[in-house]
Design a protein around this nucleic acid. Sequence first.
DNA 1: CTGAAAGCGCTTACAG
DNA 2: CTGAAAGCGCTTACAG
Lengths: 348, 348
Amino acid sequence: MEQRQIKRSTMAQIAKEAGVSTTTVSKVLNQLPGVGAQTRARIQQLIEQHDYIQNHAARHLRKGQSGLIDLVIMRLEGGYDLGIMHGVQDMLEESGHRLVIFATHENEDTEILWLRRLLDRSTDGVLLLLPYERLGIANALMEQGIPFVSIGDRNEPTTAFPTIGSTIWLGGYTATEYLISLGHSRIGIITGPLHLTTSRARLAGYREALERAGIPIDPGLICEGNYMLGDGIQQTYALLDQPEPPTAIFAGNDAQAAGVYQALYQRNIHIPNAMSVIGFDDVTYSAQMSPPLTTIRQPLAEMGKMAATMLLRLIAGQQLESNHVELSTSLVVRASCAPPRPGPLMEK
Amino acid sequence: MEQRQIKRSTMAQIAKEAGVSTTTVSKVLNQLPGVGAQTRARIQQLIEQHDYIQNHAARHLRKGQSGLIDLVIMRLEGGYDLGIMHGVQDMLEESGHRLVIFATHENEDTEILWLRRLLDRSTDGVLLLLPYERLGIANALMEQGIPFVSIGDRNEPTTAFPTIGSTIWLGGYTATEYLISLGHSRIGIITGPLHLTTSRARLAGYREALERAGIPIDPGLICEGNYMLGDGIQQTYALLDQPEPPTAIFAGNDAQAAGVYQALYQRNIHIPNAMSVIGFDDVTYSAQMSPPLTTIRQPLAEMGKMAATMLLRLIAGQQLESNHVELSTSLVVRASCAPPRPGPLMEK
DNA sequence: CTGAAAGCGCTTACAG
DNA sequence: CTGAAAGCGCTTACAG
C-alpha cells in the first residue's frame, strides 16, 4: 500500500508568506502579546489555511518538556490497574499530556531499560503503580530529580515521596460491620500479604468491627492470601474445612473474591443463600460476576485523577499542599451478601 | 518535597573532556565506523562515567522519528483490548518504541483533538483498535501519510489499509461443532451487531456446523446482541422464554457470556448441568468465571504482536508481504459445557 | 509592534 | 581517522 509521507509546512514558510518573522508567528501561535491585531489576524488565517501545527520535537528541544507522562506498572491486569488508568487518562486529556504505558513484567532487566530511557529527558514525570517491593525505583527517580507520584499499596506507613491511596482501614471496618449488621458472627477473612501496610489495614478494620460488636476474634478465620484468584480458591477451601466454617467471607480484593466464587461453586455452595461474600476494590468486572459482587469501593478513577493532578503540579514546579492523600472507600451493595442461614452449607 | 532537576551532561561536554569533536562522539554513540579503536574506547569510557544518554528531543528533531507509537482505542475495557495491548507491548519493548495510549471515549471532539496532535509529528505510527463506525479515522491517517494498522472488527470484508484479525468464521464453526459433538441440537446463539462482518462470520460458522450435522436452523434461536454484558442477559432471557428453549448457548464474546451467566444464575439454572455456555475471545477473566468458561480463543496477544510488527515494518518503509492477516482461533475447553440433560431446566 | 540572532542538543554530508 | 559547519524547527531574550 502507498503511504507517502506528506511534507508539512514549517513556521518559516508561514512567516515568509505572511511577510513577517518567525518570531511573530511564534507569538501568534503561543498567544503571546506584542503583535498587531491585523498582523495577528493575517497570520492566524495562514495558519489555518496551512493546517499548521508546531513540530513537537522542536518545541520539546527548546522548552525541555516532552508532554509525556509515563505510567509504570507491573502488569496490566484489567482490574485495579485499569480503574486507576482511566482516571489518569481523563486528567491528562485535559492537560494535553500523553500517557505512555510501561509494564515491567516483574523483570529487572526491562525495568533497568526503562529507567535508562527515562534519562533521555523524554518524560516529564512518572506515575508509579507498583507493588511494594519494587519501590526502589522511587529512589532512582528521586536521585534523578524526576517528578513522580506513587499510587496504591506500599509497605511503609510513611514515605519520603508523594503517594495517593484510599482509606483502607475504614474499608475493612465497613465491610465487616456490614456483614455483622446482616447477622453474621463467624466471618472469615482472606487478606493480602501481611507485610503490606495496606493488607494489615484491612485486617485491622476487620478486627475493630468485630471487637466493637463484642464478637471474639477467631484466628482460624483469618487466612493470609496474595490478592490473586488462586489463593482466593485455596483459602476458601481452608475456611470451609474448618470444624465450624464461617457464614461469610471477606476477600482482600475482587480478584480474590472471584476465587472464592469458584471454590464455592465447586462445593456447590450457593451465594448468598449459603455463604455471603464481600470483596474489595470494585473493579469493572465485579458487577459482572454471578451474582454481582458486593464490595468495598476504592475510588480508582478518582485516585488516578488525583495522582495525575499532583504530578502535573510537581512538574509545574509547584508545591503540593499534602504529600499523602487518601480518598475515601465506600460500601457497594450488590447481590452477594445475605443474612446467615442455619443448617448445613449444601442446601439451597 | 524537594525535586531538584539534575543537569545531565551533553555530547559537547563529553567531546570536550575526550578532546574530540561531537561528530566523533556521535559516531561512537551510534556505533558507526570511522573512529580509531583507542579514541572509541576512551570516549566509551567517558560515556559510561557520565552515565550519558542522548537527548531524545534533539535526536527526534534531527532524525524525524519520535520512537512513539499511538494505540487508539475507544475505551479500555480490560478484556479483548487488554489482550491485544499485551502483545503490542511485548513487541514494542523489543523494538525500543514506547506505547502511547489514547482513548477516544466515543467522543468526536477528543478524537479530533488527538488527530490534530498527530500532525505535530510526534508519533511514528498508529495502531487502530476501534469498532467499525469510527474507521473514518483511517482515511484521515491515509491522507496524512501516517503509517497505521487496524486491528479486529470491521464492517467491510476488505479494506484499503493493513488489518489484522483472526479466523472468526472458523471459530463460530468450531464452537457450534463442539456443542453438537456433546449431543446438543437446540443451540442458541447470541451474536454481535449484524452489520459487522465479524459478527456475521460467527453466525455463518454456526450455520455451517448445524447444516453439516443435518440440524435444521431455528431462527428463534438466533438473537442479535451488542457484545456487552447487558444484552447477554437480555437475550438469554429471550432464549429461555422460548416454548422450547435451547440446551446450550453460544455467546458472541466473553463479556456477553458473563451476561448469560448472570441470567442463568437469576433463573437458578445450573451451568453446565442444565445449560452449556460457550464464549468467544478468551479474555483474561474467562478462566476466572464460575464455572470457568469454555470459549473460542482469539490469539489476542499474538494479534497485537503481529500488528505491531507490521506497523514497524511500515514505519521502516518496507513493503508488507500481505495487507491482511488472520491468525487462527481455537477451542479452549474449560467447565461450562456438558452433554444436554433431559428434563426441566431447574433441577440440579 | 516587529525582527535579527542565538541556541536547545543532536546528526550528517563533506572536506581534510 | 577526525572535525568544522550546517541544519532539524522551534522559542526567547534583546534591540529597535
